[in-house]
Design a binder for these strands. Structure first.
Length: 490
RNA sequence: GGGUCAGUAGCUCAAUGGCAGAGCACUCGCCUUUUAAGCGAAGGGUUGUAGGUUCGAAUCCCACCUGACCCA
């Protein structure tokens, strides 16, 4: 590999250490204490004359004087000062520490515990071992690494230097843990269904396509888990869930990433009310788990997961806000004309249903900051949802909105195979009109429904967006460990 | 897809048509209580890429690449 000047200096130091019989990348280390544990019990251990061995990465500047040296090392959860005295550690290692050990090297230090004159808890070192030589130099010790592109391209460095980045991923893990906890407590079984699917379904989106060489078959990376989980409901499982990546071949923006993590669950003999209850429960418990309160801070808002969520009707709220009665304007053309007459700032979409969705998402949704369920989705917009018991034009469906973002979507599942076939055929018509996100016709799924699926409630929740909410991040890339970037030229 | 802004040393940033600089980091020397240690010295550049204008371009023009933000 080609090394720049700073990298070459470090490589030369590694060569010098090896010439002295010191391995740069040994297999084993002998930590006796994690740094936070040491700090928590520091004074008692110091009084007892404890000998400890800590490990970690050297961060910040080493401060080398003629016969004393100081540096800080950091393990995952803590940071402590190392205090080296030439007399204590010996000339050989003191020189080595000064000359051939660098900031960012990962080392092991053994010694006793002492406080400096300033009172700082320190390990008074009598022995050092190198665990991993860093060839790349650290970024600016004061300003750190701030360039967005550099942070994303070298996320590992971002994680080393910017601790709040690490914190986001801990929150994300807690969100997933609470999700599993609530589902497990309610008796749901965690299952795994195919990621590679011959027919993609369960959402309206464009897929990624791949190819199976032996079967000579096009396969799609799933855009949702839904249809397979509902086949399991047909198969007799009453409560199932899956948490995993789904893939949608669409643009990247503040709230979209082409691969994202979704939780989907299905509850036989339940309906969409049970699913709304589940959403409220998961969010409330997660908030309490993370903050001790039902209220969390998101950007400039305080969001309260304590009360029952408000419910807003899609057609009703559009009528109220814009004067357009979407249920009265039955054709796509009429709806577009009404939008143009009012000069509403929305994109033209390829079907009536998509246009209603666009209207709502642009005009109403961003203003829904407190937890809200939007309901009464037009049947054309929801090809897998059961018609509303009191109005066949709309469905028993909800979307869960927090901070203007959709974090979940659920419905009473359509289990009538004849209606399901008609919905699929309607989707094919949309496709013929140019809607490249229309749902495919899955005849095997209809076949499954023809064996009888119990009345069922279903739910999908976006883990990434929940992580955004609970980690107080405004872009999805800050809760995705390694967001996709275009390759650099050359 | 459209618009705006940005890309200069390892990092953070200057230099608005006239010698490409600073701070930190790094290297060398001194230093036994440092905390962004201190003092002294030295090194480090294909200014995102490729063209153009000009006596002269980091700077102006064109195209492209990468990213950020805004809009649709």
């Amino acid at each position: 590999m080609e090394l720049n000047e700073l990298q070459q200096q470090r490589a030369d130091k590694l060569a010098r250490l090896r010439a002295a019989g010191i391995e740069g990348y040994p297999a084993r280390s002998q930590r006796t204490h994690a740094i936070p544990a040491l700090l928590a019990d520091f004074d008692a251990m110091m009084t007892q004359g404890a000998q400890v061995t800590v490990v970690g990465r050297i961060v910040g500047a080493r401060r080398i004087m003629g016969k004393l040296a100081f540096a800080h090392i950091e393990d995952e959860h803590g940071r402590i000062q190392l205090w080296l005295s030439r007399a204590e550690v010996g000339d050989e290692w003191f020189e080595r520490f000064a000359n051939d050990i660098d900031t960012f090297d990962i080392i092991q230090a053994s010694g006793s515990l002492r406080r400096t004159n300033a009172g700082e808890a320190s390990v008074f070192v009598n022995h050092i071992a190198l665990l991993s030589k860093a060839i790349n130099p650290p970024p600016d010790k004061w300003h750190g690494l701030t360039d967005t592109e550099a942070r994303l391209r070298e996320r590992y460095l971002d994680m080393i230097v910017n601790h709040d980045v690490r914190a986001n991923f801990r929150v994300r893990a807690q969100v997933m843990r609470m999700m599993r906890k609530v589902l497990d407590e309610r008796g749901f079984l965690e299952v795994e269904t195919p990621v590679l699917q011959p027919i993609y379904g369960g959402a309206t989106a464009r897929p990624f396509t791949t190819f199976h060489n032996q079967l000579k078959q096009d396969l799609y990376l799933r855009i949702a888990v839904e249809l397979y989980l509902k086949r399991m409901i047909v198969g007799g499982f009453e409560r199932v869930y899956e948490i995993s990546k789904v893939f949608r071949n669409e643009g990247v923006d503040r709230t979209h990433n082409p691969e994202f993590t979704m939780m989907e669950c299905y509850q036989a003999f339940g309906d969409y009310n049970d699913m709304m209850d589940l959403v409220e429960d998961v969010c409330r418990q997660t908030a309490i788990h993370l903050t001790g309160s039902t209220v969390i801070q998101y950007q400039e808002y305080s969001i309260d997961f304590g009360p029952k969520w408000q419910r807003i009707s899609i057609p009703g709220s559009i009528l109220e806000r814009t004067g357009i009665d979407v249920l009265a304007l039955k054709t796509h053309e009429e709806l577009i004309r009404a939008i143009r007459e009012r000069k509403l700032p929305v994109e033209t979409k390829p079907s009536w249903a998509k246009q209603v969705d666009e209207l709502f998402s642009e005009i109403i949704q961003p203003s829904l900051i407190q937890p809200t369920f939007i309901v009464d989705h037009p049947v054309e917009l929801s090809p897998l949802a059961k018609r509303h018991a009191h109005d066949p034009a709309i469905t028993e469906r909800f979307e869960a909105i927090v901070a203007g973002m959709e974090i979940g979507n659920g419905y009473s599942e359509l289990n009538d195979p004849f209606d399901q076939e008609q919905r699929f055929l309607g989707q094919l018509q949309d496709q013929a009109k140019g809607d490249d996100e229309a749902h495919q016709l899955d005849s095997d799924y209809i076949n499954a429904l023809m064996y009888g699926m119990p009345p069922t409630g279903g739910l999908g929740m976006g883990i990434d967006r929940m992580a955004m909410v609970f980690a107080n991040q405004s872009t999805i890339r800050d809760v995705v460990v390694f967001p996709h970037l275009r390759p650099r030229e050359g």
